[in-house]
Every structure is written in structure tokens, then in C-alpha cells.
Design a protein around this nucleic acid. Structure first.
Lengths: 166, 166
DNA sequence: GACCGATAGTAGGATGTCCAACTAAATTTC
DNA sequence: GAAATTTAGTTGGACATCCTACTATCGGTC
């Protein structure tokens, strides 16, 4: 790659200037790239979902409930599956419930637990939203199917190394 | 990869179930992986920076100013380099200034423009913070140098396709 | 030289994320 | 069986991000 085509990544650039730590420049360039691409994807997906009154976070929650056996899950489980802090789950469910896409129902035996159930309206919304995000390929462009697979595999290594599959 | 070792990615799983859109499952698996890895890195970096009273966003801004010629930049330029909304720059600079790590100074000729200058305290903080983040390799683990480079190249393709280098 | 569109930055509001602390309920311990 | 511990969820606070709207200033045009 010609230097002219490189982005200005402050961290990556700093890495080049530091230079003393072997491998560090490479690492920082990768990290800033991931941060940027995540930002690009998030932005693209949110734009596609905005007309449907959803964000990616809420869309993911809706999809999760949709594909669950009973159409409902405890909030704790949602947090585990979506890798979210309990407070984030509370926040997301609050908004989905305000829109009538899900509803909180008490757990039949454990009174600590709250079940979140997708409503009929939620199912319809998920369908429309799914069409919108697949339409824009979730914002991921510029890669062949093969390259996309390679990307996923590399990221899986990182996730494994960080105990993401525990 | 054995199914047992796969993470529960609601979107990726949904993709498998949909199946009708060629290539879509691959894309979604990649997208959710990027989202997750970004989350892992963000978390690791923020944890390393917390003892130094910084977040990754503010650290990036500090590094950017540190490596600038005069140790100062217009806020507009900071936004371009860091790919941030003008209001995000305002927010970050507010906090850095409150901590005495940078200060706003008027532009000599253009009274619309505000220059942000790194202070001596800011330079010291950057050094300490840099040691902290390099110590943990920015949270990126599990890849060889070669694989890290490949990852960066793939992400660069995505960024190019999305006009990130414009 | 005055008007008018473009530009720089900020204010307010919405969303989402996390952490710390708290309440309520279940489970374990002794 | 009572006390201590663990677990589920919420509340309040801190950050960061974006968007819309606004003010101040610059520059080009007539």
C-alpha cells in the first residue's frame, strides 16, 4: 500500500514512531482498524434500522427472542447471549417494551426472574428490520465471500484468546 | 470448528436459519465478530487506561495532539483525524481540559477556530497511559504478527469500500 | 461595502454502555 | 430453621456517540 492511501490513524502512526516494541505497530494498526470498521458497520446498520424505529442493540435483542423456543427468555440469559451488562439489558428491554415490541412477564417459579416475551408486533417489526439490514449487507462491503470467512476466522482466534467462548 | 466451540451469535445463527440470501450468513458472522472483538478491545484498553483517568477516546485525542507539529490542532481537524462528530470532539476536549491535559486557545487569524493544545501535564499523562496500553497489547491477543497484518489488510478493504480514506 | 451561503464550534436531547450500590428472592451453610 | 451468601434485576451516575438546531465568523458575489 502506498503511504498516500493510508488513513491517518493516530495510534498506528504513533506506533510507527515508537518502534521500540517489536510487533506493537502492527497490533495498533489492527486495533484502530477494528475500531473504525465497527464504527462504520454500526453506523450503516443503525441508518438502515432507523426508519423502523430500532437500533442494532434492540434489533439483536428482538432477533434473539424471535429465535428462542418459547419466544421469551429471562433477562439474565439475554445478557449472556448478547454479551451485555445487566443494566444494558434493562435499558434495551425498557425501550422495546415502551414500543410494545416485547413485554415483561413474571417467571412462573422463580420470583427473582423476569421473562421478556416478544409480541406479535415485535415479530412483524423484526421481519421488516431484517429486510432492511440484509439489504445493505450490514454495512460490510469490499470483501469476497472467501475474504469475509478469513476475517471471521481471524477474529474468532482473538475471541478464543480472550475467553469469549467460555 | 466444532459446533460446540461456536459462540452464540444471535444474528449469525439467524443467518444460518434464513439461508435464502446467498452470502448473507457469512457476512453476518463477520459483522457480529467485529462487533464482539471491538467490544473486547475497548474493554481491555479502557481497563488499562482507567487508573490513569483516561478513556480510549480521550487517549487517542491526546496522542493525536502529542504527535502534531506544534502540539496543537483546530478542533475541526481533530474531528477529521479521529473520525468523530464535531460534538464528540467538543465533549472530549471539555473533559481533557477539565483535567488540565489540554487547553483551548484562540486561533491567531480565524476567530471561528479554536485551537486545542496539549499541556505539559498532558504529555506526561500520555506517556504513562501509553505504557499501560502497550503492556496489554491493546487487548489484541491470539494472533501472530502475520495474521495481525492480514486482519488489518482485510479491514482496510472494508474501509476503502466505505470511503473511509476519502 | 452589504448581503448570503458556507464553516467552526457549542447546546440540548436521545441512545447505549459500563460501574457501584441497592432491593428482593433464592440457595447454601451451619 | 436461621443466618450468610449468591443471584436477578433496577436505579443513579459517568461517558461517549450521534443528530438537530443555534451562534458567530469568514468569504464570495453583486
Amino acid at each position: 500500500m502506498a503511504p498516500e492511501s493510508l488513513p491517518f490513524d493516530p495510534i498506528a502512526r504513533a506506533a510507527t514512531l515508537w518502534g521500540e516494541h517489536v510487533g506493537t505497530p502492527t497490533v495498533m494498526a489492527a486495533v484502530t482498524s477494528i475500531m473504525r470498521v465497527q464504527q462504520i458497520l454500526q453506523s450503516a446498520v443503525d441508518a438502515a434500522l432507523r426508519p423502523h424505529g430500532l437500533t442494532f442493540a434492540r434489533y439483536e435483542a428482538l432477533v434473539l427472542l424471535y429465535f428462542s423456543r418459547r419466544g421469551s427468555l429471562p433477562m439474565r440469559v439475554m445478557g449472556q447471549r448478547l454479551q451485555l451488562h445487566p443494566t444494558s439489558v434493562t435499558n434495551i428491554v425498557d425501550r422495546l417494551e415502551a414500543d410494545g415490541l416485547v413485554k415483561r412477564i413474571p417467571h412462573p417459579t422463580d420470583r427473582r426472574t423476569t421473562l421478556v416475551e416478544i409480541t406479535e408486533s415485535g415479530r412483524e417489526r423484526r421481519l421488516a428490520a431484517t429486510e432492511a439490514v440484509t439489504e445493505v449487507d450490514f454495512g460490510l462491503r469490499g470483501l469476497t465471500d472467501r475474504q469475509t470467512e478469513t476475517l471471521t476466522e481471524l477474529l474468532a482466534k482473538v475471541r478464543r484468546a480472550s475467553g469469549d467462548f467460555a
